[in-house]
């Protein structure tokens, strides 16, 4: 079973004061730490667990500049067998379609049974790449998958729906599965685990190696045009409800009713 996992490398904005970069097309990222998209962390773990069960090879690929190498190495430490970092300067400013095209090019020439991605990325939350990539590869796909089982030439999986419903689905492989968070318990990556895979080469591929031209990637290839990134207008501030617990609870209930949060 050869599994390819597509990993996104995203800025960690959790504790940062976000500012909009000049030109208003993006946030300022220079000071931000980057890490694996949390959804993809589950995808990598799932791939490794499937490999541990049925054998095979796990390949992780990430479309991102050089600095993503550290994060790719952590994927190796998690148990992936090889990792590729795909980037050329021309790729800057692309959209989900560009990313899907690049990944499709990367995957097409390889021997694979399963492609795993996270359903969403934490940064832009667009959720586009998985579906488009499957279409480009002409394989079936599904999203928000919370359990995967592989047998013979089939993959069966569970999808978690609203209201606690489960949908159980089966498809032929090769296929593309976009996972939900929580489908496994991703292992911890210790410093020593990373050290152990320090000597594995992480090849870099650009548009030439993929056989693409500059017009297909980055801003030139994008079909969505980023107009402007802006911070939300400052709110009017919070209301602090003072008083005894009973009184403040009553006041809180009142406000919630007023705003329609309570029936």
């Amino acid at each position: 079973m050869n599994i390819i996992v597509c990993m996104k490398w995203i800025p960690d904005t959790s504790e940062a004061d976000l500012t909009v970069a000049a030109g208003a097309k993006d946030i300022k990222k220079d000071d931000l730490d980057h890490d694996i998209n949390d959804w993809d962390r589950f995808a990598v773990e799932e791939a490794v667990q499937i490999k541990e069960k049925v054998g095979g090879k796990v390949t992780v690929v990430c479309v991102a500049p050089e600095d993503s190498e550290e994060t790719l190495r952590e994927c190796l430490a998690r148990g992936a067998d090889e990792a590729f970092q795909v980037w050329s300067d021309e790729m800057e400013g692309g959209d989900g379609y560009c990313t899907a095209s690049i990944l499709a090019k990367f995957i097409k020439n390889r021997d694979f049974d399963l492609v795993l991605t996270g359903t969403l990325a934490e940064d832009d939350g667009a959720g586009q790449v998985g579906g488009m990539l499957a279409a480009m590869l002409d394989i079936p796909s599904s999203t928000l998958v919370s359990k995967i089982e592989i047998h013979d030439k089939k993959a069966s999986f569970l999808r978690e729906l609203e209201g606690g419903l489960y949908e159980s689905v089966e498809t032929d492989i090769p296929c593309l599965i976009s996972v939900a968070t929580g489908l496994n318990e991703p292992r911890f990556v210790s410093i020593r685990a990373v050290r152990k895979v320090a000597s594995i080469d992480i090849p870099n591929m650009g548009i030439e190696e993929l056989g693409m031209d500059a017009g297909q990637v980055g801003q030139a290839g994008a079909r969505l045009v980023m107009e402007e990134v802006s911070l939300p207008p400052e709110g009017e501030g919070a209301e602090i409800i003072a008083g005894k617990p009973e009184e403040s609870a009553a006041r809180l209930a009142e406000i919630l009713k007023e705003k329609g949060a309570l029936g």
Partner: peptide
């Protein structure tokens, strides 16, 4: 256990934060 990657999920994030930012709160070094 850690060497095998087995550690309670609740402790993973703070450890990763220390690795990346030197503090478990995930706050920026600066």
């Amino acid at each position: 256990l850690i060497d095998r990657g087995e550690i309670p999920q609740s402790l993973q994030k703070p450890l990763q934060q220390i690795k990346k930012k030197g503090n478990a709160y995930g706050a920026m070094k600066s």
